[in-house]
Simulated scan of single mutants.
Amino acid sequence: MTIQAKRAKALPVLDREVDWGTGGIVDERIPAAAEALIQDLESEISGELLDWFKRRIGRYRAYSEMADKSPATHEEVRLVREAQRYLLEVRQRLSNLPPSADAHVNAACWRRHNRLFHGTGGLLGDLDVLARETDTLLAIAEQELGRYPGSKGAKSKSARDSLLSDAAQYIRENSRNPITKRKAAETARDLLLAAGVSVPADVKEVERLLQRFREGGK
């Protein structure tokens, strides 16, 4: 029989349902103008540009949808820090159970696992190790979040710039003849515009976006 414990009032949880993920079929369709442009590029670019671009723009749409649903970066940082506080509180509570509860937990742990809950080699030590590692991972995530601007729109632009960078790199790596970075950037720009993705028309601005993305969004 499963025993349902009461929720501790001093330990808040997320009561509201959230939908931050993506679902359903990934949309890999591209407009006729983009297909026509890719056909024109076949004499210049080897590989399967059409198949690659369909897969890549499908991923871009899925990520953009997720970014639109996600909270702003500062809110994500707040939730990460909140999770770290909850981890610490759980560890402190379990390390300082009241006497009777502590005795019952130790007895139950011995019956179920042939080991105590507290002390050297106790089950709580396993949880403590996992909690410390989780805290470290959350700290790393917070540092990564700090590298990006704090608005939802910035996340959508990050997805766009990632697509633009990948397209420029694919074009350079699969060009049948030597190609400059500017020409690759220009071709990637034209490809995204034909696919209905908003990018600057000025190739110099496109180059700046690519450079900034490669430097980690700085």
Rank of each mutant, 00 (worst) to 15 (best):
M1K: 15
Q4I: 12
A5V: 06
K6G: 11
R7I: 02
P12N: 05
V13G: 07
D15N: 15
D19Q: 14
W20Y: 15
T22Y: 14
G23F: 11
D27C: 04
E28A: 06
E28P: 00
R29S: 13
R29V: 05
I30T: 03
I30N: 02
A33M: 04
A34D: 00
E35R: 13
I38Q: 05
D40M: 09
L41G: 03
S43Y: 11
S43V: 14
S46L: 03
L49H: 05
F53W: 01
K54V: 00
K54S: 00
R56C: 08
I57V: 12
G58E: 01
G58S: 02
Y60K: 01
Y63S: 10
M66L: 09
P71Y: 09
A72D: 13
A72G: 07
E76H: 12
R78T: 11
L79W: 13
V80I: 11
V80K: 01
A83R: 09
Q84I: 04
Q84L: 06
R85P: 00
R93C: 00
N96S: 12
P98N: 05
P99Y: 10
A103N: 02
V105C: 03
V105A: 07
A108H: 11
A108Y: 13
A108D: 03
W110F: 13
R111V: 05
R112T: 07
H118E: 06
T120H: 11
T120K: 13
G125C: 07
G125Q: 12
T134G: 10
T134N: 08
D135F: 14
A141E: 08
E142P: 04
L145E: 03
P149V: 00
S151F: 09
K152A: 04
S158W: 14
R160D: 02
S162M: 14
L163M: 04
L163W: 08
L164C: 01
S165W: 15
D166M: 08
D166F: 08
N174M: 07
S175I: 08
S175A: 15
R176K: 14
N177S: 14
E186C: 06
E186Y: 09
D190V: 04
D190M: 07
L192E: 01
G196A: 04
S198T: 10
V199C: 01
D202A: 10
K204C: 02
E205N: 07
E205H: 11
E207S: 09
E207W: 06
R208N: 05
R212I: 00
